[in-house]
Amino acid sequence: DSCIQFTRHAGDVLFNLNRLRSRDILTDVTILVDHQRFRAHKTVLMACSGLFYAIFTDQLKFNLNLISLDPDVDAEGFGILLDFMYTSRLPLRDSSIMVVMNTAIYLQMDHVADTCRRYLQSSEDI
């Protein structure tokens, strides 16, 4: 049906969610990754990651407010992906692309992992 479509609304909402995160407003979970703590909103995490979707839809786990990830998960890679969730921007650096891809696989962020794979493939082609 006809309407007024605000084309940047999704981005504006995401921007404000990131502001809420940076001010620790209504954040409801701490993610512990290799001794580093990351505060976040469960709803954003589960909207972006299959792993967090599975955790927070589990009747035994949805109420947890501290989640420790596998000790093999890289804190820098997690930080980059958490920033991506709140900004839609994924920095491309040769030094971090592998760790970002492996962390994306762990978090079941399949589209990001596929994109990293394609980026690595195209880098090899060059």
């Binding site: 007024i4 940047r8 504006d12 001010r23």
Partner: peptide
């Protein structure tokens, strides 16, 4: 015309900006 208005795209900001 069937009385419906056309869909309009609004490219400006849609909501307030939460301060830093």
């Amino acid at each position: 015309r069937d009385g419906r208005l056309p869909t309009v795209k609004e490219a400006g900001r849609s909501i307030h900006e939460i301060p830093r």
